[in-house]
Amino acid sequence: MAKFFDRIFKPFQRHVALPSSLVPPVVGIASGKGGTGKSMVTVNLGVLLGSPRARVRILDADLGLGNAHLPLGLKPDRNLQYFFEEKGSLADLLQHSRYGVDVLPGGSGLSRLAHLNPSDFRRFALGLDSVLEGAAAVLVDSAAGISPQTLSFLLASDLVLIVTTPEITSLTDAYALIKCLALRRPGRGVSLLVNQCDDSQQGWRAFEKIRDISGRFLGIHVSFLGAVPGDPAVRSALAARTPIVIRTPSAPAARGLRACARRLEDILEEIPQWRKVPSYGRRLLEAQR
């Protein structure tokens, strides 16, 4: 697949001609239920959209149990505790992969980080701006569930992408998440990606269910980003700590992810580059209130 920004020549706009005050588009990736493949989707979409010149940054917003760095084969030697103990800035934590994607890893097994107090959260949010500056796009890999912290990360994003599986439990949890978002910000649409499908029809049916129910009860528009089939190659790519779109590009899951990336690319193209919007950190603070 031709790379996102290479194809339309945004690298030069974003990295040569544009000032550093540019606000990159932010996609919040979430799920109601855990284990839907959110991190796998985030990492692979990041790899497909990013390039060495137009780097995509992944913010692992699962601050207590982050693992977005794992599929990229990164081994961060520090975690967020380093930042909160005031030993350095967030930029020191940024991990650069060789696939055109940078990751700000979350903590691993740090319960304190899963629910930050307001002052720590404020410090974290304001520190984020310097890390995300200059990125072509930002993907926020949020924690599963509907904790206030998770919802803040999503509400501050330009686009919310919900990852679900076709199981009814996953669908109802995805709907519950949409409902929480709708209550906080009515009328705002979300996108849906159905992972681990038997076939694309099953993905479409799952989407239709969520779309119809969200429209009927919440008045929320849900758009379909795509369906990713269940594929054993995903597991082997994860074991090899390589994104599946790199390790097995011809695998069904990699194909599904490429189709989703193309759709996401279209959506991101519509987000104006010169937006008069506050930075992501500021929006995060706003959402937290």
Partner: peptide, 22 residues
């Protein structure tokens, strides 16, 4: 500066065609 731009049918793999794809 030079760059390459994908053109139709730039992704021509029949198995990748999805009815939901833009």
């Amino acid at each position: 500066y030079w760059y390459a731009e994908g053109v139709a049918p730039w992704a021509h793999h029949s198995q990748e065609v999805s009815p939901f794809e833009a």
